[in-house]
Simulated assay, not measured.
Amino acid sequence: MATVNIYLTFNGNCKEAFDFYKSVFGGDYPYVGTFGEMPPQEGMAMTEEDKNRIMHISLPISKETLLMGSDTGGEWASSYQPGNNFSVSINADSKEEADKLFNGLSEDGRVTMPMNHTFWGAYFGMFSDKFGISWMVNYDDPAKAQQ
């Protein structure tokens, strides 16, 4: 069965916000990654400011719940507004479940990143549904995690 979490987006102050949330909820970050740690992408230049922005951070809230987030930057920054800075994140138990959820929920919506294998080893996609809600679908293949 898939799990659902909230994914927050910030405009340069993600780490500050998550440090605040951590001070309230407690716990530790299992992962904090910056855009500068991503593999280089052909034809894509990145400013020093963008390299230091958070690409992904997560904070466990309970056994079932993670608060996740990132900074926006580049072409995505122009559409950032406080209040539209979240997505519902689904972590599927299989690639088939990920495809089913992605295809069903994105019907008549707007796909911003089709389901595909990523450099971080997940099968991942993003879209806004026909009601304007932003979603992320992720499947972490255990076989790829061990490589």
Results as ranks from 00 to 15, higher is better:
6 I>H: 02
12 G>R: 04
15 K>A: 13
15 K>T: 05
15 K>L: 15
16 E>V: 14
16 E>G: 04
17 A>Q: 11
19 D>Q: 12
19 D>S: 06
19 D>T: 10
22 K>I: 10
24 V>H: 08
26 G>A: 06
29 Y>P: 14
32 V>S: 09
33 G>H: 08
41 Q>E: 15
42 E>L: 02
43 G>S: 07
46 M>C: 07
47 T>W: 03
49 E>R: 08
50 D>N: 13
52 N>L: 10
57 I>V: 14
57 I>M: 04
60 P>K: 05
64 E>N: 13
68 M>F: 02
69 G>K: 12
71 D>P: 01
73 G>F: 05
73 G>K: 06
75 E>Q: 12
76 W>M: 15
78 S>E: 10
82 P>M: 03
82 P>I: 11
83 G>C: 03
86 F>Y: 14
88 V>E: 06
92 A>P: 00
92 A>W: 05
93 D>V: 08
96 E>C: 07
101 L>F: 06
101 L>D: 00
102 F>Q: 09
104 G>T: 04
109 G>D: 04
110 R>N: 14
112 T>M: 12
116 N>Q: 15
116 N>R: 14
118 T>M: 15
122 A>K: 07
122 A>P: 00
124 F>D: 05
124 F>A: 07
129 D>Q: 01
130 K>L: 01
131 F>R: 03
134 S>D: 13
139 Y>N: 14
140 D>A: 14
141 D>Q: 10
143 A>C: 00
143 A>E: 15
146 Q>F: 00
